[in-house]
Amino acid sequence: MRLSKSFFKKLFRRKITIIGAVILVIIISMALLSPLIAPYDPMKINPIDRLQKPNSTHWFGTDNFGRDIFSRIIYGARITVLSGFGVVIFSIVFGVILGSLSGYFDTLGMFIMRIIDVVMAFPPIMLALALVAILGQGLINVIVAVGAVYLTRTARITYGLTLKIRKDAFVEAAVAEGAGNGRVLFLHIIPNLISPIIVQATFTFAFALLQMAALDFLGVGIPPQIPSWGNMLSSSQDYITRAPWLLLFPGIFIVITVLSFNLFGDALRDRLDPKFKDEL
């Protein structure tokens, strides 16, 4: 990817993309600086203050344990961003390895892609549910379970791109010059996959946040004592008539975070080499 000045200029041509970028910066700073921003300990239980409406001491109100929602949202950004990155890294690393190898070696490709196709026929949430049940509830395990779902998509895309690039003149030239498989794969093919993969990563991040929130909601996501936004929503459903603010704030934060990633991904894709556009 050519990170020139004009690239950024074009990327941020639309105002909405700038808004998206600003929100992302805010969320990421919330995640990094949580202890400095949060007014209360997010885990501190205080039964006397339970289910308080938003007010001047508790900006977003308190939950059924009397914990401060605002502080939990701030710390929630940390978990949410961290787990999102976890899924992206897991799915991209393994997806690219499987996808490019399958695209490069035909027989292996047939075998791996066959399995990946079958796995893709499983509804993502059912797959993630089953994987969490197998691995047990835990932050890393949920990342792996959701990562596995998106791994298949990344692998499929990488596979398609690799097939395409393999036939490009420069790759064929390198092969003709006697370059080994590893060299061709790592020096010629994978570097050319980077920009579409970054775009894919942005969307994966957005989808992964939604998927993990859904798992949290079903009670099989990140362990419930960790204040992820999804977990906060999950425990709010018992109080929707009495304490709707429990539902409101974490939801809004999920929506704007996912939205910013989507906006950002869209802008990146528009700037992308048109050769790859069809695949994404």
């Binding site: 239980i45 344990f65 004592q225 425990s235 018992d238």
Partner: peptide, 14 residues
């Protein structure tokens, strides 16, 4: 977490 009230009690106990 299969029973919400069980879990809620345990959070406070912990």
């Amino acid at each position: 977490t299969s029973y919400q009230t069980m879990y809620d009690s345990c959070v406070v106990i912990a």
